[in-house]
């Protein structure tokens, strides 16, 4: 089991504070400043018309950021497109990118501190059904890697909604 393409989602503390359209302007300004480390930011896409969809998407060569509305739970999602080395390195790189983007949003002047993200739990999504299928075996196999990154005190829950979904792990009991 390997992490090659990987997603991290950080949930907004106050869902009602997320006005998804605000992020069109914010993400465009990120491109103007190219302010996300180690990412070639490319374009912004507005998918706010899709129910529980990717919301506003910031496309980068290395991975995509979005104000994700999946399951009606707004948050910041980051999906890395290519591995960054080993599974552990890929997970660390993805987490770092997601946290960096979250810190930029939390510091965004136009949002006046309204949007903040939970730091004690997040979701890890394996975005590769071949290398990390959604099953109990893969879940058990991935735990050691997760423990290396999130610590041995973290709780890992197999959280995929259905068998056809991607391998999704709720990570809680952490402080990132």
């Amino acid at each position: 089991m390997e992490f090659s393409r990987l997603g991290i989602k950080l949930f907004a503390i106050d869902s009602s504070a997320v006005r998804v359209k605000d992020f069109v302007q914010i993400f465009h300004s990120w491109i103007q400043k190219q302010c996300v480390d180690n990412h070639q930011l490319i374009d912004v896409h507005d998918y706010s018309h899709i129910h529980h969809g990717p919301g506003i998407l910031l496309v980068a060569h290395e991975g995509n950021f979005s104000i994700d509305m999946a399951e009606g739970k707004p948050g910041l999602a980051y999906f890395r497109k290519k591995p960054a080395g080993t599974s552990e390195e890929t997970l660390r790189a993805s987490l770092k990118a997601a946290l960096h983007a979250a810190s930029l949003i939390e510091a965004e002047p136009s949002l006046e501190g309204r949007v903040r993200f939970l730091k004690d739990k997040l979701v890890v999504i394996s975005n590769d059904r071949l290398l990390a299928p959604n099953n109990a075996t893969a879940f058990e196999e991935v735990k050691p890697t997760l423990a290396k990154v999130f610590g041995t005190k973290a709780d890992f829950t197999h959280a995929s909604a259905g068998t056809k979904d991607r391998l999704t792990i709720l990570v809680s009991g952490i402080e990132v």
């Binding site: 529980h52 969809g53 259905g162």
Partner: peptide
């Protein structure tokens, strides 16, 4: 447009 989740 529809999302992957909606399509599934």
């Amino acid at each position: 447009d529809l999302s992957s989740w909606q399509m599934r």
